[in-house]
């Protein structure tokens, strides 16, 4: 599973880095960014799904099966 942030949609609500701090961080203006290459380590799939399901802007997307 991979995670991505569409930076055109992200408005810096910060739900992703609140919910899944192992997968997302904030930049100097509060916008979300993917940590590392976006590959979700085993055991963190649930956090990844929650981050996507709680983004008010639908900026966080998942690619399954990667």
């Amino acid at each position: 599973m991979n995670v991505q942030i569409d930076s055109e949609c992200c408005q810096g609500h910060g739900r992703c880095y609140d919910i899944a701090p192992g997968l997302f961080g904030e930049d100097g203006e509060g916008y979300g960014r993917v940590l590392g290459d976006g590959l979700v380590p085993a055991g963190e799939e649930r956090e990844a799904r929650l981050a996507a399901a709680n983004c008010p802007e639908r900026a966080v997307t998942l690619t399954e099966g990667a």
Partner: peptide, 13 residues
């Protein structure tokens, strides 16, 4: 799953 809009949506978040 709580995609609420309490803090607004779009550029005026």
């Amino acid at each position: 799953a709580n995609r609420h809009a309490a803090f607004g949506l779009g550029i005026h978040r």
